[in-house]
Computed example of a mutant assay.
Amino acid sequence: MNAEVVVVGAGPVGLAAGAALRQDGHSVVVVDKLAAGANTSRAAVVHARTLEVLEQIGVSKRLIELGLPLQDFAIREGDRMLVPVSMRELPSDYQFTLMVPQPVTEKVLLDRLIELGGEVLRPRSAVGLTQDAEGAHVTLDTGEVIDAQYVVAADGMHSTIRELAGMKMPGDTLSLSCSLVDIRVGGGLSADEVALYFGSAGLLVVAPFADGSFRLVAEVADAPEHPDLAYAQHLLTERGPRAGAPKVTEVVWGSRFRIHERVADSYRSGRVLLAGDAAHTHSPAGGQGMNLGIRDAVALANALSLALETGDDTALDRYAEQSRAEAVRVIALAHRLTRLANVPRPVRPLRNAVLRLVAGSPSATRNLATQLAGLS
């Protein structure tokens, strides 16, 4: 089997890379080890810069139709507003944060890939990789070999392609784990904002979806594998708003994962290039992970198109350098938000006083909005 590019991994990052390459007229094979796409919500936020980037492959409008645009992001402690952050003045046509479950994003990207003449080979796992002067050669668990000019590793934090290419992703595994719970409530939560709560027990993100459900994201010492209704209620009661006494009526879905702060030493090794979680991973604070990965994917597709069309691969080195630098900045932002939420109790009055000063500075809140939106 031959293609100009083989993309390993068919999550949002791999699908975006594949669609962008097909949009530019290149042959691409996307492979994924799963028999079907995942149907859990996981990443749920699409920021303004990501929507700008997705214009290139013609999916931004469809995502907005299916999602919930929100113009307000708030940092709170219980019922007290610490920092209101408005997206209304973003230097973008998309002056909002879009709440849309990951399966919806994946379906829109997959539909676009197919519309552009692409497909996903499932279930196929990459088990071998070689490179030579003629190209890169990916061996699948079926025995098939795909011969390509370049390989995109979009196969997640435990990337097989990254390992086969001998690339390293050093960093730290934090003592905290992350609990994701999608819930329905009998009132008491705002459907008009994404709220970041600095609770006495730690951070809690509360974000609404278009169907009336809410996503809870909590950093905890030991997250349960299958959070139940009582656990979700405990998170809300302990960390969330007091007014309205929101009562959880249903747990739609839940999961957990460890929090890592890691970035690959390099995004390129010859004909192999990294994107998304294969290149970087960090705290979910600020909802940056999938957004950064999609921006990786489209930037990499543009660089690959240039290399394939001109024979000059300097654009690939530029992608590797610039995207890695952006990942370092995003990891630093997520780290700061996590640290702010988890300062020792005696320091919290000082933290809150500083945050109130930030809230009183329009330039500071605009800067935070710009960073969250990926526009800095």
Rank of each mutant, 00 (worst) to 15 (best):
H137V: 00
N39L: 07
H234G: 13
G67E: 11
A325I: 06
V6C: 10
G287K: 01
S255C: 09
E261Y: 04
L357P: 07
V217H: 11
Q23N: 07
L337V: 09
I64Q: 11
F96L: 01
A38E: 13
L176K: 13
S125D: 04
S283W: 01
A299W: 02
L204K: 03
V13D: 03
A43L: 02
T310E: 04
A191H: 14
A279W: 07
L292I: 09
D211R: 05
R256G: 09
A48W: 03
V151K: 00
V354L: 14
D312N: 15
A299Q: 11
L306E: 14
L34Q: 14
P91N: 06
P346V: 01
S213M: 08
R239C: 08
Q322C: 05
S159F: 09
G186Q: 13
R88K: 15
P346E: 11
V252Y: 11
L90Q: 07
S200Q: 14
G276Q: 08
A341M: 02
Y197S: 01
G37S: 15
T249H: 04
H26Y: 02
V347C: 12
L333A: 12
T310L: 06
H158W: 11
V7H: 08
A359Y: 05
M1R: 06
L121V: 12
R366E: 04
R258D: 15
Q56G: 05
D172E: 15
V205A: 04
L21F: 10
A19E: 11
A327E: 10
I64D: 11
E115P: 05
A373W: 07
A35V: 10
P284F: 02
S27H: 08
H260Y: 14
Q288W: 09
L368C: 05
F96Y: 15
P362K: 04
T50C: 08
L121F: 13
G254N: 12
D132G: 07
A264E: 03
L82Y: 09
G37A: 14
S283G: 08
M87Y: 14
A373H: 07
A191I: 01
D172I: 12
A373N: 01
V127N: 02
T237K: 13
A278Q: 05
A320D: 00
A10W: 02
A332S: 14
N342H: 15
R162L: 10
V29C: 06
L51R: 11
S125R: 15
H137Y: 13
A148N: 00
E219G: 13
L333R: 12
E77K: 14
L304D: 07
S41T: 13
S361K: 07
S283A: 09
H335E: 15
R76T: 06
S190C: 05
T105D: 00
T40N: 09
G18I: 07
V248L: 07
P84A: 00
V8D: 05
Y319V: 00
V145K: 00
N39E: 13
G9C: 08
L129I: 03
P346C: 08
L274T: 02
D182I: 04
L174K: 12
P284H: 03
V217L: 04
I183E: 03
N39Y: 04
M87I: 00
D172L: 13
V151Q: 03
E193W: 10
R356F: 09
V145E: 14
Y94K: 10
